[in-house]
Amino acid sequence: MIRIIELPKIADPRGNLTFIQNPDQLPFPVKRVFWMYDVPGGEIRGGHAYKTQHELIIALSGSFDVVITEKNSTQKKYHLNRSYFGLYLPPNTWRHMENFSTNSISLHLSSSFYNADDYIRQFDEYRKI
């Protein structure tokens, strides 16, 4: 189930700290980590689903929207702008990211190593699964 996961936040006047420990905060083991940055204004990233991969997306800096599209084409938008909240996406979730603020950084924790065959890149194919 798609959901926001609140990560631990240790408040300190010198600066806050957030951490992730498996399996305490994540419903999957992490095998790959990647991040996106320097996304030009107006650009859209993503536009795919994964067949088997689980993912947690965190806005480490700035903000952006993750738009989930259901097979019936209805959409739900999640605005990520806090580094202690992550959006959990199970397999077979069609998503794209948009509305990136200046200097935003999106961190992605994945349950799988990169595998091009795990991507569903055509929405019509996604609808059939």
Rank of each mutant, 00 (worst) to 15 (best):
residue 100 F to G: 05
residue 97 M to V: 15
residue 74 T to S: 05
residue 35 W to I: 11
residue 53 Q to M: 13
residue 65 D to I: 13
residue 48 H to N: 11
residue 93 T to W: 02
residue 49 A to G: 10
residue 14 R to S: 07
residue 35 W to G: 09
residue 113 F to M: 13
residue 69 T to F: 01
residue 93 T to C: 13
residue 56 L to F: 02
residue 32 R to E: 12
residue 127 R to W: 01
residue 44 I to R: 03
residue 30 V to Y: 00
residue 49 A to L: 07
residue 61 S to R: 04
residue 29 P to I: 14
residue 122 Q to W: 01
residue 45 R to N: 10
residue 29 P to G: 04
residue 46 G to F: 09
residue 39 V to W: 01
residue 73 S to K: 15
residue 123 F to I: 11
residue 109 L to I: 07
residue 97 M to N: 05
residue 26 L to S: 06
residue 122 Q to M: 03
residue 77 K to W: 04
residue 64 F to L: 03
residue 70 E to W: 00
residue 107 L to K: 00
residue 117 D to M: 07
residue 28 F to M: 08
residue 82 R to S: 10
residue 29 P to V: 15
residue 95 R to S: 07
residue 43 E to S: 11
residue 72 N to C: 11
residue 67 V to G: 01
residue 120 I to L: 03
residue 53 Q to L: 10
residue 87 L to N: 07
residue 51 K to G: 05
residue 28 F to W: 05
residue 95 R to K: 12
residue 70 E to F: 01
residue 79 H to C: 09
residue 72 N to A: 08
residue 49 A to S: 13
residue 95 R to A: 07
residue 9 K to T: 12
residue 81 N to S: 13
residue 99 N to H: 14
residue 96 H to D: 08
residue 48 H to I: 07
residue 25 Q to R: 01
residue 14 R to T: 11
residue 120 I to Q: 01
residue 79 H to I: 14
residue 99 N to V: 11
residue 98 E to G: 07
residue 72 N to M: 08
residue 118 D to A: 07
residue 71 K to A: 08
residue 13 P to V: 10
residue 44 I to K: 06
residue 102 T to A: 08
residue 77 K to H: 02
residue 58 I to Q: 03
residue 53 Q to I: 12
residue 28 F to I: 13
residue 61 S to Y: 06
residue 77 K to V: 15
residue 119 Y to T: 14
residue 66 V to A: 03
residue 102 T to G: 06
residue 17 L to F: 11
residue 126 Y to A: 03
residue 76 K to H: 12
residue 10 I to R: 02
residue 123 F to W: 02
residue 117 D to I: 06
residue 104 S to D: 04
residue 54 H to E: 12
residue 101 S to Q: 05
residue 62 G to H: 02
residue 48 H to V: 08
residue 59 A to P: 14
residue 11 A to V: 15
residue 90 P to H: 05
residue 14 R to W: 02
residue 117 D to S: 13
residue 74 T to G: 00
residue 32 R to M: 10
residue 110 S to Y: 04
residue 99 N to K: 13
residue 55 E to P: 12
residue 104 S to T: 14
residue 17 L to T: 14
residue 24 D to H: 09
residue 112 S to A: 09
residue 39 V to C: 04
residue 55 E to V: 12
residue 85 F to A: 04
residue 105 I to T: 09
residue 80 L to Y: 03
residue 81 N to A: 10
residue 124 D to H: 02
residue 11 A to N: 12
residue 71 K to N: 06
residue 30 V to C: 04
residue 56 L to T: 08
residue 36 M to F: 03
residue 108 H to N: 15
residue 97 M to L: 14
residue 8 P to F: 04
residue 65 D to L: 03
residue 61 S to W: 03
residue 72 N to P: 15
residue 102 T to C: 05
residue 109 L to M: 06
residue 77 K to T: 15
residue 37 Y to D: 00
residue 52 T to W: 00
residue 71 K to V: 09
residue 76 K to C: 06
residue 60 L to K: 09
